[in-house]
């Protein structure tokens, strides 16, 4: 009987599923209440084939060290809570499968860069949202509201589709070397959200937004390193959007 019971978990594993494996996470820790310096902690957990980095972080928090602190909510890449630096690249922990980041070696997990760290993997998002708010991220129109919907062709709608996908996770902005050295720079996310309205045929506020982004901390700081495009978990062509905003500033055509 005992043998049968012990065999049961193995028998339950569906054929064809990737087996379990052990994975080590090297996590950057910082607690404002326990001294000034950040440290590295290593944790080894047993993961399943489809587990994500977020699952591993949960295993650590729920089974090993309850004080490990990170943000998360939806757990499938739409809420933007859990952007972090995983093996040196900005990603969403809930969208990064462990098996895709070489679990044979320790996986490093750090907070995103360029924003003040509050605790462990949690950063202060206020400067990020402040830049977002500055570019007037809302539809600006003149004259009377129409009695029905505003008319917009499918082509006009398509023009700004890519930048409507932004979830404000800050993966792009906090991957930008310009932002790392100059926290005043608006950063890719704010420009992406400006793009979303500048190229919306219903919007009348493009001139104002371009004026704001023409600032010395504006769009011209971009050095086209493409880090932002690589970092975006929504697949937005961030660098292209920034280039289109630069172009619009020169030609005033949008």
């Amino acid at each position: 009987m005992t043998a049968t019971l012990e065999d049961a978990p193995a028998a339950e594993q569906p054929a064809g599923e990737i087996p379990t494996f052990d994975v080590t996470l090297r996590v950057r820790r910082y607690s404002p209440e326990n001294g000034e310096e950040s440290t590295w902690d290593e944790f080894t957990v047993t993961a399943h084939g489809t587990d994500r980095v977020l699952d591993a972080l949960h295993m650590i928090k729920w089974e090993k060290d309850g004080s490990l602190t990170f943000r998360r909510s939806c757990a499938h890449g739409v809420c933007g809570s859990d952007a972090m630096r995983i093996n040196g690249r900005n990603r969403l922990a809930c969208k990064t499968l462990l098996k895709d980041v070489n679990p044979d070696k320790p996986i490093t997990v750090e907070p995103i860069k360029g924003l003040p760290v509050l605790k462990d993997l949690v950063v202060d998002m206020e400067p990020f949202f402040a830049s977002y708010r500055e570019i007037m991220p809302f539809l600006i129109t003149h004259g009377n509201e129409p009695s029905r919907e505003r008319i917009q062709s499918a082509e006009q709608r398509e023009r700004f589709d890519d930048t409507t996908k932004c979830i404000l996770c800050a993966a792009c902005t906090s991957s930008c070397p310009v932002f790392w050295t100059d926290g005043q720079y608006f950063g890719p996310a704010a420009i992406v959200n400006a793009h979303r309205f500048i190229f919306d045929s219903r919007d009348d506020g493009a001139t104002q937004r371009l004026e704001i982004l023409n600032d010395k901390e504006g769009v011209w700081r971009c050095r086209t390193t493409f880090n932002c495009t690589e970092a975006c978990p929504r697949g937005i062509e961030v660098t292209k959007a920034i280039a289109e905003v630069k172009q619009a500033m020169i030609t005033r055509a949008f």
Partner: peptide
């Protein structure tokens, strides 16, 4: 009218 980009 608030700006939501509906499909058209």
């Amino acid at each position: 009218r608030m700006g939501l980009p509906f499909n058209r």
